[in-house]
Amino acid sequence: MFDSRHLRTFHEVVVTGSYSAAARELGYTQPAITQQMKALEREVGVPLFTRAGRGLRLTEAGETLARHAEEILEGLRTAQQQLGALARLRAGRVRVCAFPSANATLIPAAMARLQAEHPGIRVELLEAEPPESIQRLLRGECDITLAFSYPGADAEVPPEVQVTPLMEDQLTVLLPLGHPLARRQAVRISDLAEERWIAGCPRCRANLLQVCSDQGFAPDVVFTTDDNLAVQSLVAAGVGIALMPALVLSFMCHAKVTGRLAEPHVRRQVSAYVLRDHLRVPATGLVLDELVRAAASRVGC
């Protein structure tokens, strides 16, 4: 492996044609240039220069190295510039994996502010429900994961992962607009024992079963899907009702569907998960900060 300092000096000797001229350009003494070139020749294993009168002539090895030296040094300059940009938050790529309703709500708000203030940072957006999204973080497939958990069902988080709570998301009952209970501001879960239900992802389905069990009944689940738009369409068509997070209400697409607060209140915790080592990357920390701000702006909505 060549010493980059020796390579820069070699390139200057080639360009200027002598040790003394290179010394003047670089601000070194001539003996210092001589010592560096001897050290480089030891690294290469063969002479790089021969004397031609008072001047220098490149050996075959010297010509070979000269052809590559400028390209190598330009690559180093480019790398230094890019690393400097990363350190100053002018550039960087951050991979974020989130569940669908976060991708439709928290992510757009955070990314709009990020793009306005730090346009050089690029975010690659992935989608997965927990616990798969957290596994993707542990496998190194993303830098930040947004995931949710329900009371009493928190999964153990490895010590190398930092968890940043973002917000609590109130659960709501999704009803067809003409449903008799749609006139209420809030709906008791116990009043829905005879309803047919649309269940969501495995974690949400498990929560639905637990909530209903706590109210003394087992829900009649007639359809299961983790597609929020599909759930809305099924509710609108009268196939069943659903227990959905309030985040979903902000992108409700069906005029024939309405959401009502569930009683007793049930909230899921939305958090950001980051490998602790990744927090040392400035761009990752910045994206996390923007996600925290986006979640804070939704509290109380």
Results as ranks from 00 to 15, higher is better:
residue 126 L to P: 00
residue 127 E to P: 00
residue 127 E to Y: 00
residue 128 A to C: 04
residue 133 S to N: 14
residue 134 I to Y: 01
residue 137 L to E: 14
residue 137 L to A: 11
residue 137 L to C: 13
residue 138 L to S: 01
residue 139 R to F: 07
residue 141 E to N: 14
residue 146 L to W: 06
residue 146 L to Y: 02
residue 148 F to Q: 00
residue 149 S to L: 13
residue 151 P to Y: 07
residue 152 G to Q: 07
residue 152 G to T: 03
residue 153 A to V: 14
residue 160 E to D: 12
residue 166 L to K: 11
residue 166 L to D: 15
residue 170 Q to C: 10
residue 174 L to I: 01
residue 175 L to F: 02
residue 176 P to H: 11
residue 181 L to G: 02
residue 186 A to M: 10
residue 188 R to Q: 08
residue 188 R to I: 02
residue 189 I to D: 01
residue 194 E to S: 12
residue 194 E to M: 13
residue 198 I to W: 03
residue 198 I to C: 14
residue 199 A to D: 04
residue 199 A to V: 02
residue 200 G to W: 01
residue 205 R to P: 08
residue 205 R to H: 12
residue 206 A to L: 15
residue 206 A to G: 07
residue 211 V to L: 12
residue 211 V to D: 00
residue 212 C to Q: 04
residue 214 D to W: 03
residue 215 Q to V: 02
residue 220 D to L: 15
residue 222 V to K: 10
residue 223 F to C: 14
residue 223 F to L: 12
residue 226 D to K: 01
residue 227 D to V: 03
residue 227 D to H: 12
residue 233 S to V: 05
residue 234 L to R: 15
residue 241 I to G: 06
residue 242 A to V: 06
residue 242 A to S: 15
residue 244 M to I: 12
residue 244 M to F: 11
residue 245 P to H: 03
residue 246 A to C: 05
residue 247 L to R: 04
residue 249 L to N: 09
residue 249 L to M: 09
residue 255 A to C: 03
residue 255 A to W: 10
residue 256 K to H: 15
residue 257 V to W: 13
residue 259 G to I: 02
